[in-house]
Design a binder for these strands. Structure first.
Lengths: 145, 145
DNA sequence: ACAAAGTTTACTATTTTGGTCAACAATGGA
DNA sequence: TCCATTGTTGACCAAAATAGTAAACTTTGT
């Protein structure tokens, strides 16, 4: 039940992108540098997000990445789904045919509840939430200002 | 985010044991047969449960396995913890030292919530719950009796 | 034309998963 | 007492997934 580095790096990359967005695209290289992730590896991780249309990329000089939506409209459930494939703890949830006992299997019901709990958690968080949370963490001194 | 076969087989084996418990120990071979799991593999899967004291084993002729507690006192959270190692989606939850950004990492907070959601789900289910659920599934005709 | 980006494909090393096998230890019964 | 039976342990192994690296390729601004 581990999250892959793809899911973790990818989420951090998206968060980084959300925080550094401006008029101009953000370069993958910058994100890789700031987040201390191998550029080549990050290319692979970002790919499904571009394909899914969460990120728009422009090639060539002065190119880079941009979010296609506002951070508040990007839910972590969607992001993780894209990065991790599926969040299901067992295959028989998505396709019951994969296991002959699926319909009488009581443990399956439990794994299904697990999935729901995970989904609900990730669905309740947006990129915007993460951005705000990080800003609060980084500026704790403001309280005394 | 997949559950290993150890977790799934192990849970099923425990459920099987709970349902077939009587005066005499239940043989691993029987469980393996009923659940269609390789005997040799099941030996390894059962081992941590025996070590943890959830199951008592007796060797030799007429030996086998018995639960040391009532099914209602065995929570799935404990079982999965033993079979799967830890349920944590990332290492930095258990030991924050494993990641230098742990204290300022906002994604870590989310993974932490994920873990809590999973824990809560598994903590709410006991072996007894599974036994009852399965009995209800296997005797649906009783309704018309 | 060229340099600067992202894209894609191919490859690889390491780790995890999912087992198998065989030797061993303990126990009950003939 | 000996033997069949049953669980225990450690060694080993193949396949798949994970985590990357490298290089050729495409696009685009200047």
């Amino acid at each position: 039940m581990k999250l892959s580095t793809r899911a973790r790096y990818g989420t951090r990359a998206l968060l980084d992108l959300a925080r550094h967005e401006g008029e101009k695209p953000v370069q993958l290289k910058e994100i890789a540098g700031r987040q201390n992730i191998s550029l080549h590896y990050l290319e692979h991780i970002i790919a499904p997000l571009v394909r899914a249309g969460i990120i728009r990329s422009t090639r060539g000089a002065r190119g880079g990445l941009q979010l296609t939506r506002q951070p508040k409209d990007v839910r972590l459930s969607e992001v993780i789904q894209l990065l991790e494939g599926t969040i299901s703890p067992v295959d028989c949830i998505g396709n019951p045919e994969s296991c002959e006992r699926a319909d009488t299997c009581v443990t399956r019901d439990i794994w299904c509840e697990m999935k729901k709990a995970i989904d609900a958690t990730l669905d309740s968080v947006t990129l915007q939430d993460l951005v705000e949370k990080q800003e609060r963490k980084e500026a704790p001194l403001k309280q005394n200002a």
